[in-house]
Nucleic acid binder design. Structure first.
Lengths: 339, 339
DNA sequence: CTTGGCACTCACGGTGGCAGAGTGCCAGGG
DNA sequence: CCCTGGCACTCTGCCACCGTGAGTGCCAAG
């Protein structure tokens, strides 16, 4: 009972603070939430919570605000995931269904997510390595430059210019195309790399050098230069919470322009099947120490296609945000799976 | 002589204000710039400049700051374009040469521009309509769904999924591919659309329906849905000048997330051969009324491939910014032209 | 036309006092 | 043992006040 009420107090503090952005005091708390005890009792509980490190006061004689640890406890034990309304679900679905190609899906998702959560949204493009080869096209640019175009079953298109030492004619290009497609089409990336490596050995001698060059590029495109792209939207929402960040806003924006950082944030959530929350310093990015990240993977269960999530102030509506992220990820996953 | 000194005073005011961000007074002005006259004289000139609307004072008994009109005069008549250093030019070139594909060129350019100018940079992807068709590829997704991939000579790849009423086999797909490529390859977009429209009529009857569908999609992809994309970078730099914008920062960020707005800003500069500057309300975007846009087209003289530019506070280093924009545009143009 | 002098205005920074919110502690009651 | 009301204390935020300094406009003299 005792312990339980304390948690209830913590929840009340978090919820109130999220709404008001002002340190919350014992009196207000006792009044607005049906705790059934007097402010003085609440004060005692708060005192205990402070000692345990869940809340803190910005200065003496002000109310309390949650600490990182406090938010963590709230997210882990005190908050459900509040379901979206039917209208919201329908809105998501209809908005995403209007997409015409992969790029469009990603761009729509990221805007949608930013709008729903009123925060900064990040969506990773479906990763190459977990999709499979649908088609490889070779186009002659000039006698010794080829354009290699790789199309995946998620609709992603990768392109590379390849310089070859000796000129080739269209017939040879056709043969090369045939060989590459024959051995790689339909394979998942992980397998395709192996098949590609074996390919030159089994081919006609005169094709070998070219095949070696091409497969090298293919491998490089698929693995080495895992240039995972991300889309970003809703940065304007950061200013909404500018009170929280004040002058650190600049550093946050800078961090968000670094693809590497973004990938680290949402990439790690990609493998877990559920929505994960990183609070404050848990993000491991110094500039984001006063923000939280809510992220998840999307598509195909365990080996997800990519990650998506939102970045916002620690003082955020976790249940609502988590619900939105989960819902969008689900729909995007279905959309790409069915495609 | 009289008129001339006034302009000199205006120039001095603009230059000082750009550096200090503080209203500049007559005394400082007479001291720091070799005007050869006393503060009192400067005051008279300032008074005249104010009456003509080139400068204004934020409040009585403060210095003067330039108005939109003042900046305009400065840009038109008082500022040269200060050339970049040799080192800077080399930096641009080497940074851009590392790009591996079109996407990479654009992303590198936009980051480069943001870094050079320390402002928000915008780069439009090379437009479809002013490039020419290099190759059209058709891939069978399922019996009655085709993926149409369009490759341009600027290296851009456009893709569309096409639903066709009656199934086709690989042979037919091959024929269609041949026909489309035969009639469209090497054509500029504007011409290609006409050729595409004529195509079905001259083809074998059994291919006509499919060709009609496909060419419709091609036309649509090329013209109707002129989905001109843009890349954005350096939004963090906005906070540097946050003193100027204060709370309007949010609206600026919102405006910058609207592709339409960005396209309007830099698209209009695309046709002019030179660097154009839009100051304050000249941008015609309400949220950007306290910013300036420096933009230009890049690539191939009159019919440019796209536009690029930067958005920054009205209080910006115009000569330096203009030089940077021009230089980057030039190198990108060369890079894409040579490709 | 320029210049020095002069009175005037007004933003800005520092000080002091007041009110309000919130706390911690304590003694009494269930 | 826990809850409660009371009370003194602390601190921030706000407002009013005031002196300072930068900057102006005007004027009369060179």
């Amino acid at each position: 009972m005792l312990e339980e009420r304390r948690l209830e107090v913590l929840r009340a503090i978090v919820e109130d603070f999220v709404l008001s952005n002002e340190p919350v005091g014992s009196k207000m708390l006792a009044e607005r939430h049906a705790l059934g005890v007097s402010p003085a009792t609440v004060r005692n509980d708060m005192s205990a919570l402070e000692e345990e490190g869940y809340i803190t006061q910005p200065h003496t004689s002000a109310g309390r605000i949650p600490t990182d640890k406090g938010y963590r406890l709230f997210v882990d034990r005190l908050s459900g995931v509040k379901p979206l309304s039917r209208a919201e679900r329908r809105a998501i679905q209809s908005f995403l269904e209007g997409a015409v190609d992969l790029d469009d899906v990603v761009r729509r998702s990221v805007r949608l997510l930013a709008q729903l959560t009123r925060q900064v949204a990040v969506v990773q493009y479906p990763s190459l390595s977990s999709s499979s080869v649908r088609h490889i096209e070779i186009v002659t640019l000039s006698p010794n430059r080829l354009l290699l175009v790789l199309i995946t079953d998620t609709g992603r298109v990768e392109q590379r210019v390849v310089e070859i030492p000796t000129p080739v004619d269209d017939g040879v290009v056709g043969e090369l195309r045939g060989l590459l497609n024959g051995s790689l089409r339909g394979r998942r990336m992980a397998d395709a790399t192996e098949a590609a490596a074996d390919l030159p050995d089994s081919a006609r001698p005169d094709l070998r050098p070219h095949l070696t060059t091409l497969t090298t590029v293919v491998l490089e495109a698929l693995l080495e230069r895992q240039e995972e792209r991300v889309a970003l939207a809703g940065t304007a929402n950061l200013t909404r919470a500018s009170v929280d960040f004040a002058d650190s806003l600049r550093f946050i924006l800078e961090a968000l322009e670094e693809q590497v950082v973004l990938l680290k944030l949402i990439g790690s959530a990609r493998e877990t099947g559920t929505v994960t929350v990183r609070i404050g310093r848990e993000t491991d990015v110094d500039a984001l120490r006063s923000t939280s990240v809510v992220a998840t993977g999307y598509g195909l269960g365990p080996a997800a296609l990519g990650g998506m999530g939102v970045v916002g102030p620690m003082r955020m509506d976790y249940p609502g945000t988590m619900a939105a992220v989960r819902a969008v990820a689900k729909y995007v996953g279905e959309l790409l799976g069915a495609d």
